[in-house]
Amino acid sequence: MNTENKAVSTEQEKRLLNRKDLLKTWWRWICWAQRCYNYERLMGLGFCQAISAVVEKLFSSTKDRAETLSRHMRFYNTENNWGAMILGATCALEEERAMGHDVAPDMIDSMKNALMGPLAGIGDSVTQSIVKVILLGISINLATEGNVIGPVLYIVGFTAYALIVSYFSFFSGYRMGRGAVMKLLASDTTKNVTDALKIVSMIVIGALAAGNIKVNTIVAGTFGGSEVVLQDVLNSILPCMMPLAVLALVIYLLKKKQKSSVFVLLTLFVIGFVLTFVNFLG
């Protein structure tokens, strides 16, 4: 709140960009940031397309436009939703530059470079390992039962998340400018919220593991005249004992042994085939 008031009071002069310009920029970003994804510049061209309307509005000479567009073509990569904040802040800085304030082009570049990493870090973990996992967990459950609500819920939920987060992130970036974005990233609140989300994510991951890793032994025999089914014995000791063992093995290989996911995949294939052929699993 404080920052917002200060920004208004120090800038009595009229802003050059209106809401329509900013909406157009945000929309292009959330639609086409990764349309021309490539290893050389990643989102570079996407960023340039997003900000191009702002550049056209702010600068009328071909020379200024060329300089600004080329500068925004450089290597760029972040997380789309949370990273929209950087685009917002960039719009604010280009606007100040066009209004004749002392904003060096290099400074805009270094801000983009300084912020894209941290926001990708936060954004990737929140979007992909928390929001995605919780939504998928619920949706997969429903879909396995043949319920159409599963994928529909996932699409609606994730799309709403992307639109809402990127919208607020973009416009708060525009209002706050550079300094405040840096401060926000370092704040305790950000850390507490990420921690809290991690808890939800962890508990859902655990639940997914028990419900979806399927390992069943078909070993059975008669002991002292009564039929004994090994799987039933295992279940009575600890349900989902074998899925837990497989998961432990996978984590051991990935984390302790630093094996690649391809190696783990092949290991699982070998285990699956060998144990099927010795009539242990089925």
Partner: peptide
């Protein structure tokens, strides 16, 4: 059958990767 059994094991990789990522 073996393909099916392996199919039951592979989710452990997906979940394992996720766990190591948010570890």
């Amino acid at each position: 059958t073996a393909l099916g059994v392996t199919g039951g094991l592979i989710p452990a990789l997906g979940i394992g990767l996720l766990l190591t990522y948010v570890w």
